[in-house]
């Protein structure tokens, strides 16, 4: 009769512990050696393919894609700004009645990549055609025409539509009706960004509006400082640092979009460049 090998309880525990350590160790080893930068890029699936494969759950597929887009706004900025418009297009293709993606696309895409403004406008205009009754779509379209395309005529058309959208918040309605009343474009822009910030329903849009307001405030501050320098020394500074060394401002402010400011010595106009 063969002898039955019996393992002690300690041996079993030791074996279990060893296997557990090996499991965690292999995971750690894999993570440390995993190839970097091989994430699946966004925009890999066309809406037609998703629509054919989602068992009629188009709304759920659109929600999942929407979650993916809003969680990757930073990645679009850093890696693939051009794909944001096609991903947003896919969301609205899958669920044409989902209103927020239209306005989000109109507001965010030009801010991430100006060259994609026509695509952003096309998404917004499709949202208008769907007649969803969301004031954000015409308001953000009007703002994009005003701020990005410097087209007050079209901006006014959408601002008027915003003011007549049922349920529009009072602050937005006033801002839309006032469109064109400000003589300075900057003042008009500031007024719209303020209304967007005050009526935003999510943190990303609110932060986008606040960053733009901060950006405008920094420009105004620097322009005022340059004018003060000219008044004091009779000439424009050769470098912006001169505003600090002369004690007019304590430091060159940090722009929320990472823009570095410069100055033209001849006329004191500010110059803008990305990065140092």
């Amino acid at each position: 009769m063969p002898e039955v090998v019996r393992h002690s309880s300690t041996a079993r525990w030791a074996l279990a512990l060893t296997l557990l350590i090996a499991l965690v160790g292999s995971q750690v080893f894999f993570d440390r050696n995993a190839p970097q930068g091989h994430d699946i890029p966004l925009s890999t699936l066309s809406p037609d393919v998703v629509r054919a494969a989602d068992l009629g759950l188009h709304g759920a597929a659109a929600s999942l894609l929407w979650l993916r887009v809003v969680q990757n706004v930073g990645m679009y900025v850093l890696q693939s700004p051009k794909t944001m418009s096609s991903d947003m297009q896919a969301v609205v293709e899958l669920d044409p009645k989902f209103s927020y993606p239209y306005s989000f696309a109109v507001l965010m895409i030009p801010g991430i990549d100006r060259s994609q403004t026509p695509q952003a406008l096309a998404i917004g205009e499709r949202g208008m055609a769907e007649n969803l009754g969301d004031w954000r779509i015409p308001y953000y379209l009007g703002f994009t025409y005003h701020f990005v395309l410097h087209d007050p005529k079209n901006a006014l058309v959408y601002m008027t539509q915003t003011a007549h959208t049922p349920g529009v918040p009072e602050g937005i309605k006033v801002s839309a009706l006032n469109y064109g009343s400000q003589t300075k474009v900057e003042e008009q822009t500031r007024e719209i960004w303020t209304a967007i910030r005050d009526n935003a329903t999510d943190d990303v849009t609110r932060q986008q509006a606040q960053d733009n307001l901060d950006h405008l405030a920094i420009i105004d501050g620097l322009k005022a400082a340059v004018a003060a320098y000219k008044a004091r020394y009779g000439t424009f500074p050769t470098r912006l640092d001169a505003l600090v060394t002369s004690g007019i401002i304590p430091a060159i402010p940090q722009d929320p979009f990472g823009i570095t400011f410069g100055i033209l010595h001849d006329n004191g106009e500010l110059t803008f460049s990305l990065g140092k």
Partner: peptide, 23 residues
Amino acid sequence: LGSISLSEDVHVIRSLGMAGIYL
């Protein structure tokens, strides 16, 4: 998932919830 959807909580919960029941 709703909490990370930029204030579209109810929409996301409803669409994914009904899909979950179905699947």
